[in-house]
Design a binder for these strands. Structure first.
Lengths: 191, 191
DNA sequence: ACCTGAACACCGTTCAAGT
DNA sequence: ACCTGAACACCGTTCAAGT
């Protein structure tokens, strides 16, 4: 008899999973090097698969970029968790934003691919990753406010907006993102 | 004899100038409505000319967008001049930035076309328009500092960076640009 | 000189055929 | 089921022919 008969989808065949992993790995390397200039055909040949296989795994170019960016949100969320738990004074939010800048800067190519692929939307996480992040950011804000280090009206929306600005400055090289961070963090202080 | 024989280029024929004006007018209307989604063929047919004529006047899509955006810099510079001359206290720079936001918001379609067309560059003016603007912004900063309303280390680069952030927030609708302005202007105050 | 638009080039995406 | 790659579609740009 077959090993399992649950209605839930079974684990993918090994070669299918490996193809997917190869495509993602190739995409991450190429986007890191050349940003939004990489073509779908390049990703396919770098991954050693046919172009059709890329589209079997990722419905469109944007979906591939989105998937390649998922690492980031995991990284950022993990850092936020540790900052949120470890911070003793009210500086958690500032450290969070600095880390966001560092992650966006470290892989500027992917940052610009994301921004270019999403027509109107910002560079925020989607779905449940977003919900989890929102929860952590909310807690960082509460702690900052409790410590008297943050304006009472500081909100999660501010943090997303500022992240988008960091992304924009880094992507366009229109200035020094650490300087922007200084200005904005200053603006977030009470009084 | 011909009216003039200077080596300087003569005035363009009337129909050529009219074609150029029609193309720009069509481009401005279309970009305002549909942002970066407008196609070169659409611009041509909306202007009532062949596609080749569009390319005779503007070497590439980006050049057309750049030209369509020139109005903006004239608008902004004029406002900066009047603010610079009229402001009594140190609020000139804040009013300047608010006006930039209003201009970018008023024609969001063009704003996003500009950002999408320029791969890496920001949404700053180029050439001599930039030089003139820089001069005025520099004076606004000096006056703000003299009035004790601005940090001593505030620089023209900060203003360009902030303008780029306003553009990003407005384009991606990732937040309330007036809120961003409040935060940043607060961060630019001394102490 | 300038205008026209058919044609080309490029690249994202599809789909019939193969395994 | 999944893979392949030739072919299609779309759109920016060019250029030979016309005025």
């Amino acid at each position: 008899m077959p090993t399992e008969s649950t209605p839930a989808r079974r684990a993918p065949r090994a070669d299918v999973a490996r193809n997917r992993a190869r495509i993602l790995e190739a995409a991450r390397m190429l986007f890191a090097e050349r940003g939004n200039a990489v073509q779908m055909h390049e990703v396919a040949s770098a991954a050693g698969v046919g172009i059709g296989t890329v589209y079997r795994h990722f419905a469109a170019r944007e979906a591939l970029i989105e998937a390649a960016a998922e690492h980031r949100f995991a990284d950022i969320e993990e850092f936020a968790q540790s900052v949120c738990l470890a911070d003793t004074h009210g500086q958690g939010l500032a450290r969070y934003l600095r880390h966001v800048g560092e992650v966006l800067e470290r892989d500027r190519g992917l940052t610009s691919a994301i921004e270019a692929a999403r027509g109107a939307a910002g560079s925020e996480p989607r779905g449940e990753a977003r919900a989890r992040l929102e929860e952590v950011i909310g807690r960082l804000i509460e702690r900052g406010q409790a410590a008297g280090a943050l304006r009472p009206d500081c909100a999660v929306a501010d943090v997303y907006m500022i992240s988008g600005c960091l992304s924009s400055v880094i992507r366009t090289r229109s200035g020094d993102w650490r300087r922007l961070l200084d200005l904005v963090v200053d603006g977030l202080r009470p009084r």
